[in-house]
Simulated assay, not measured.
Amino acid sequence: MPEQESAESRGCTAPGTPGPWAAVFDDERTAAVRALELEFGELFTHVRRLFAENADRLSPGMLPGAYKVFTTIARRGEITLSALAETLHSDKGQISRTVRELEELQLVQRTPDPADGRSSLLSATPDGIRRLDAVRAPRENSLLNALESWHVDDIRELTRLLHALSASEAPD
């Protein structure tokens, strides 16, 4: 029976101990993650600028955070204040103040929650939706245009990887 090759002879070490390539792998991984962080930073800066511009077009002087609250309500259709605060990982009091501002701007309305008489459902007003559509229209196709030269499989792969990252899961 031929002698089996040992883990040591293949350059491997016992489980849990770093192998000879660990330093290179860690350096490459660290460099790759840092480059990704920089690119995310640039992307976030771009998105914050877009939110600020859209917020100001929706209602001059509106802060980007209020715009995010409004777009979340508009996207959800109906949502309770508690669920909204949880979704946005924000303080319920701050979200409540922002919602009052949005109500004053006639962008958001409250209706009684049929499932809980003590609670209200928040929804965008028809005028709020119309105004939001008008604000988004100039940039509506910007992502479509930016990805025009990309192969559809690359777009799907990016979507899959971003989903895995946001879910803190390893990609399949």
Rank of each mutant, 00 (worst) to 15 (best):
E3N: 09
P64F: 09
R48V: 07
S119I: 03
T72L: 03
I73Y: 01
A137D: 06
G65L: 07
G128V: 05
D116H: 11
V33Y: 10
L63K: 15
A124L: 01
E28C: 10
E101P: 00
L38E: 12
L50E: 05
C12A: 12
T98Y: 04
V99Q: 01
E5H: 15
L122H: 09
G61R: 07
T159D: 04
D116A: 08
R160A: 06
Q94T: 11
P18V: 07
L107S: 04
A134K: 13
A115G: 06
G61A: 14
A134I: 05
R49E: 08
R48M: 12
E169D: 06
A31T: 06
G93M: 11
H151M: 12
E5F: 15
P126C: 01
K92D: 03
T80F: 02
A31D: 01
L143Y: 14
D153Q: 07
T13L: 04
L43W: 15
R131N: 05
G41S: 12
I155T: 14
A22S: 13
N141P: 05
L161E: 00
C12N: 13
H89S: 14
R48W: 13
E39I: 09
E5A: 15
Q109Y: 06
S166C: 09
S9M: 04
D154W: 15
F51W: 11
R34S: 04
E103L: 08
F70S: 05
T159L: 08
D172E: 08
R10N: 03
I129K: 15
K92I: 07
R49A: 11
S149W: 01
L147Q: 11
S166L: 12
V69C: 02
A74N: 04
R97C: 00
F70C: 01
N54Y: 12
V47N: 10
A83D: 10
E140A: 14
R10M: 07
P171K: 04
A137K: 14
Q94H: 13
E157Y: 09
A115T: 09
A167F: 03
R57I: 07
L38F: 14
A74R: 08
A55P: 01
R118W: 06
Q4D: 09
S59K: 14
A74C: 06
E101I: 05
G77K: 03
A66F: 06
L121D: 04
R97I: 00
I155F: 15
W21C: 07
P114M: 03
G128E: 03
H46P: 02
V33R: 11
R75V: 00
D153W: 14
L158C: 11
V108N: 02
V47A: 13
E169L: 12
S9L: 02
T17G: 05
A31C: 00
R136M: 04
Y67K: 11
L147V: 12
E148M: 10
L81E: 02
A22F: 14
E8R: 15
R76F: 02
S6Q: 02
L63G: 12
T111W: 05
L36P: 00
H46R: 15
E104A: 14
L38Q: 14
P171C: 01
G77D: 00
I155C: 14
H151N: 12
Q94V: 10
L50C: 05
Q4L: 14
